[in-house]
């Protein structure tokens, strides 16, 4: 009985994931697509590397460099997952003009949107891997594979991706009420959250009045756990969350992720109803 009730959700997710992958990847041949997937994240990492190098005269062995580099590498997931899920609203509504058909098809729309994010997640995972590999091989990023806490790494990664997907769903709901802006709003939101996540600098660098935003932001805890699982001694050297154990941070991350899941459910429904009332389901905007 339960399996039958889950079927529409699984079907919506599976088909959306397949569709998302086709849309993301079939505009170019696989080689070109692979190059495209590498250049963008490596360039973003290289901006930080050059900034750091200019000021410290290339002192890549310092712990702060590994802190910055890894935080920035894993942050690729934030923009990609949030954009993958939220941009599908604009893409289907204004580019393919299929959103109204999705609403009259036997598809669970929020699950469909989550499925559309899968392709970007795969691309992000590939980019993160390449970026970290580049850092280890050429920039002295201190990862010792024998000392990595793999269990903590994969558990944190999984929880974090679910949390990011829920944040993407909130954004997708908001986008249903907005016009087509000129670039990926998911990236813009991710760019803004970059400031409050301790991704590339410890939260202590922020003014005292703004630090609380970083402490209620689940991405802060997610990145800390990923850093601790890969390079424990480097991550724990920074004061932000040094008083908390891995388990305490994991509990905080799970609690915040559940909170975001509940918020995203309510927020998406509310925005969706408003979009239906205002007749925005098939609106086309472009100036």
């Amino acid at each position: 009985m339960r399996a039958t009730s889950l079927k529409p959700f699984v079907r919506s997710f599976h088909l959306a994931a397949w569709l998302g992958w086709q849309i993301e990847s079939n505009w170019a041949d696989p080689f070109l697509f692979a190059i495209y997937s590498i250049i963008k994240p490596v360039s973003a990492a290289a901006i930080l590397v050059v900034m750091y190098s200019v000021i410290t005269h290339g002192n890549f062995a310092a712990p702060i460099f590994s802190y910055i580099y890894l935080g920035n590498a894993f942050y690729i997931f934030v923009g990609q997952v949030m954009t993958g899920i939220s941009w599908a609203v604009i893409d289907d509504r204004e580019h393919y003009k299929t959103m109204k058909y999705l609403y009259i098809a036997p598809v669970h729309f929020p699950t469909y949107l989550l499925g559309r994010g899968v392709a970007r997640f795969i691309i992000a995972a590939f980019s993160v891997l390449i970026t970290i590999l580049f850092g280890v091989l050429f920039l002295k990023v201190q990862i010792d594979l024998t000392e990595v806490n793999w269990l903590l790494f994969f558990v944190s990664l999984m929880i974090g991706v679910i949390m990011l997907a829920m944040m993407g769903l909130i954004l997708a709901g908001v986008l249903m009420l907005l016009v087509h802006h000129e670039f990926g709003i998911g990236d813009a939101i991710a760019g803004a959250l970059y400031l409050f996540s301790g991704a590339v600098f410890p939260l202590e660098v922020l003014p005292t009045s703004l630090r609380w935003i970083g402490f209620v932001n689940p991405i802060t805890y997610w990145l800390e756990l990923l850093r601790r699982s890969l390079v424990g001694q480097v991550a724990q050297a920074f004061p932000t969350l040094s008083t908390l154990s891995n388990m305490q941070i994991l509990i905080i991350l799970i609690t915040l992720s559940i909170t975001f899941t509940i918020i995203s459910g309510y927020c998406f429904r509310w925005c969706e109803n408003l979009a239906r009332e205002r007749g925005l389901i098939d609106v086309v905007t472009n100036y």
Binding site: M51, T56, I68, V179, H181, G191, L195, F201, P202
Partner: peptide, 26 residues
């Protein structure tokens, strides 16, 4: 479309601030 003020000014400003704080951190 007034939402552009948030998406085109506030968000990029926060993004730029992150780079400022990286320089401050080092």
């Amino acid at each position: 479309e007034k939402s552009w003020m948030f998406f085109d000014i506030v968000l990029p400003l926060l993004s730029v601030s992150a780079y400022v704080f990286i320089y401050r951190a080092i």
